[in-house]
Simulated scan of single mutants.
Amino acid sequence: MSDALQPEENNGVSLRTLTHIVYGLFALGLISAGFLGVASIAAIVLAYLKRSDAAGTLYASHFDWIIRTFWWGLLWLVLSAMATWIFIGWLTGLVAIVWVVYRIAKGWLALLSGAAPSPEL
């Protein structure tokens, strides 16, 4: 008599919306110059948590792109901070920040066009 309930196909936020949220949080953390650095950390945690749900989809490449951008950017910013005592760290830090902004913009624009971020550069 009673029909079994079928699980809903679209529970919660879609992966596309979630990917936009991750890019937005990462950009907010970067724009705020560290004052809202928690937003960047939240973006990376969210990307790690949802990466397995996105496996085999277009969004998996976006989560990987964001995660790689975070870790490489953090590495170069830490190395730049250590190199500030020889004054070259300021320049390399600026280059690292520009690179992270470029990667966020490139990935987000690829998401808006429905494509995976391309790995060149």
Score class of each variant (00 low, 15 high):
24 G>M: 06
107 G>Q: 09
24 G>R: 07
118 S>E: 15
15 L>P: 04
4 A>N: 13
66 I>S: 00
47 A>Y: 11
105 A>K: 01
102 Y>D: 00
104 I>E: 05
11 N>L: 14
119 P>E: 06
100 V>T: 05
98 V>I: 14
111 L>I: 14
75 L>W: 04
100 V>D: 00
32 S>E: 03
109 L>K: 13
62 H>T: 14
75 L>G: 10
68 R>E: 12
91 L>M: 13
6 Q>I: 15
113 S>E: 15
93 G>T: 14
45 V>M: 09
115 A>M: 10
93 G>I: 14
17 T>D: 07
56 G>T: 13
17 T>Y: 01
115 A>Q: 13
72 W>Q: 09
23 Y>N: 02
58 L>A: 01
87 F>V: 13
113 S>P: 00
53 D>H: 06
100 V>F: 12
107 G>C: 04
114 G>A: 10
36 L>P: 00
42 A>I: 15
34 G>S: 10
31 I>A: 09
13 V>E: 12
8 E>K: 08
20 H>K: 04
47 A>H: 11
48 Y>D: 01
44 I>Q: 09
91 L>N: 01
116 A>N: 03
71 W>Q: 03
116 A>Q: 05
41 I>Y: 07
114 G>D: 12
1 M>R: 05
15 L>K: 03
18 L>Y: 03
57 T>A: 07
4 A>H: 12
56 G>W: 14
10 N>W: 05
107 G>R: 03
64 D>L: 06
51 R>K: 14
97 I>W: 11
117 P>R: 03
98 V>P: 00
68 R>Y: 08
49 L>S: 01
78 V>M: 10
118 S>W: 06
25 L>S: 03
31 I>V: 15
101 V>R: 03
89 G>M: 05
40 S>I: 12
120 E>F: 12
71 W>K: 06
115 A>I: 05
120 E>I: 11
36 L>D: 01
73 G>K: 04
19 T>L: 02
42 A>H: 06
96 A>F: 07
60 A>L: 08
